[in-house]
Amino acid sequence: MTESNRKPIGVPPRRQPDNLSVQNLVKANRSPGSNGESAPASPTSHSGPLPDTAPKQVTFYMATDDLKRAKAAYTGTSGQEMDRSWSDFISRAVLMEVERRERLYNEGNRFEGGTRNLAPGRKIQL
């Protein structure tokens, strides 16, 4: 190989904060009124509580074998049952159990409450 007379370039110069594309994204996603500009409201930029029909993330634990069984049932039948998603499948399954308990224990009426947080952890077995 031949040697070059060129000096090594080194690392590129740091960009100034006003040139970063991330900053442009931040400006575009700021809520209206924060910098005097008016911007159209997006579905996620509302103030106040979520409507009762808005989806809310739920986390729960399930035995591994039961989870595998549920996933297999979902993947094997989601086309025939017209499930929109795994969440739709789980939601429908839970609501079927809710309706069963309402029929059995509350004459088919909805139970009162449901607004308090559930106690974390396992229920104590006596």
Rank of each mutant, 00 (worst) to 15 (best):
L118D: 02
S45T: 14
K7H: 13
T44L: 04
P49S: 12
F111I: 02
P55R: 08
A54L: 00
M82E: 11
P40Q: 12
Q125R: 14
L25H: 14
A28V: 06
T2V: 00
A63C: 07
Q80R: 11
R30S: 12
A73W: 13
P40E: 14
K7C: 10
L20V: 09
R30M: 10
R110Y: 04
T115F: 00
L95S: 15
G36K: 14
G79C: 09
R84F: 04
P17E: 01
K7S: 15
T75I: 10
V98T: 06
N29T: 02
T44Q: 12
T53Q: 06
Y61P: 00
V58K: 01
G79K: 14
M1D: 10
N35T: 12
L50I: 01
K68Y: 06
P32D: 07
E37K: 06
F111L: 04
G114T: 06
P8F: 11
L25K: 14
G10F: 08
T2C: 06
P55Q: 12
S45E: 14
G76S: 11
S31K: 14
A72N: 12
Y61N: 09
T115L: 00
A73H: 15
N19R: 08
G114A: 06
P43H: 13
P40L: 13
M62T: 08
W86T: 06
S21D: 09
G114K: 07
Y74P: 02
N109K: 15
T77I: 02
A28T: 08
A41W: 03
P40M: 10
S45D: 11
N5I: 08
S85I: 03
K7A: 10
K71V: 06
V58Q: 09
S45V: 01
R84K: 15
F89E: 07
E102S: 01
R101K: 03
V11H: 11
R100I: 07
A28M: 07
V98R: 05
V26G: 10
R69Y: 11
H46C: 11
N35A: 04
R6A: 11
Q16C: 00
Q57H: 10
L95P: 02
V94C: 07
R103C: 00
K7W: 08
R6G: 00
T53H: 13
E37R: 05
V26M: 13
T53S: 13
A70H: 02
S38A: 07
E37V: 02
T64P: 04
L67M: 09
R15N: 02
K7P: 09
G79V: 02
S42Q: 15
S85N: 07
A70L: 04
P49N: 13
A63W: 05
I9S: 11
S38V: 05
D66G: 03
L126E: 15
G48L: 08
T77C: 03
P12W: 04
P51W: 04
L95W: 09
M1K: 13
S78R: 14
T44Y: 06
E37M: 03
A41R: 04
A119S: 13
K71Q: 15
R92M: 05
P49M: 04
L104V: 04
A73Y: 14
D52Y: 03
N24T: 11
G36D: 11
I9G: 04
V58I: 10
L95D: 15
R101M: 03
F60M: 05
P13E: 12
I9Q: 09
L50A: 12
